[in-house]
Amino acid sequence: MSSVSEGRIPDSSVRSITRGPLRAALRADDGVGIEAVYDPCTADDAGAGDPGTVIVVAHGFTGSADRPAVRRAVRTFSRYAAVVSFSFRGHGGSGGLSTVGDREVLDLAAAVSWARSLGYGRVVTVGFSMGGSVVLRHGALYADPAADGEGGRPVAEREGRTEACTGAYADAVVSVSAPARWYYRGTAPMRRLHWMVTRPTGRLVGRYGFRTRIHHDEWDPVPLSPVAAAALIAPAPLLIVHGDRDPYFPLDHPRMLAAAAGEAADLWLERGMGHAENAADETLLTRIAEWAVRR
């Protein structure tokens, strides 16, 4: 599913020769080019991290791999594990147009597949806001072949897709500040976001004001909802994180996700936290990293 612009990097050499970030150009199953960044684990003490785990970070809408909040998360996570970050389609240096959470699952699958190609046996996806909804759908659609016998193929029949992508599944999923349902307009920030996505003038604002290129077509078909996806992630562990001052999605959203996932999910409701990666401080990011390497 994914390809690296300079060719496949041998699994045995990446961690031994790479001391700083490594950039790559991946390709999603539908041909869209995706920029990605690999950061090696910086843990001084082997007991503080897990050399066999890589965390794949999925940013929120209007973000990118190079945004300061994403880089801060990468720096914190890299103290515990290697990190792969990337820009969703329509964002940053990636190609294509944003579909606001639909085809983005292919971008995440490309990043996960590349992370495994670097020699890591365990992948944890961490998504924020839109990225939080994408990691939920990805966790539902792409299964561990050892768990369900799909031979490395996504469980894509749930959305009518049949893309093959060996190793594109996640071993654990962390969803931060994600919606539980689509088309939510119950808060002023979400009403502004819907205006930006659905109106020509709004898409111009997105392109030139937020450097985000948005597709003009409506979803067809409507993708699996986050709450429906949460119920399908088990047996992979799931962590749901949400702030009690989130201006986009009130607390019924994380509670719906946790209820759908049942005993497979941990729910953290963070006092005083706002929305997504911009509101995630180093203390919370550290706790997430610790959960990711120990769960």
Rank of each mutant, 00 (worst) to 15 (best):
A280M: 10
A156P: 00
A265M: 02
V54A: 12
D107F: 10
G274K: 07
H91R: 06
L22D: 01
P254C: 09
F61G: 01
A115I: 09
S225Q: 15
T283A: 14
E290H: 11
A188V: 14
D102N: 14
E218F: 11
G7A: 14
L108N: 08
G119H: 13
S133G: 15
G96W: 04
A164I: 04
A24T: 12
Y120M: 11
R79I: 00
V37S: 02
P200G: 08
L141R: 09
A276P: 01
H91C: 12
V126K: 02
Y142Q: 07
G52H: 11
D244M: 10
V37G: 00
P235D: 11
V54S: 01
R19W: 06
T286N: 05
A230T: 10
A279H: 02
R287G: 12
G90A: 09
I240M: 07
D39A: 12
T286K: 06
V4G: 07
G131K: 07
S2F: 14
H253M: 08
D45I: 04
C41L: 04
R116H: 11
V4F: 13
V56M: 08
T286C: 01
Y142M: 11
T76D: 01
A261Q: 02
E263A: 15
A65T: 01
V241Y: 05
A180S: 15
D50F: 03
E290D: 09
A140L: 09
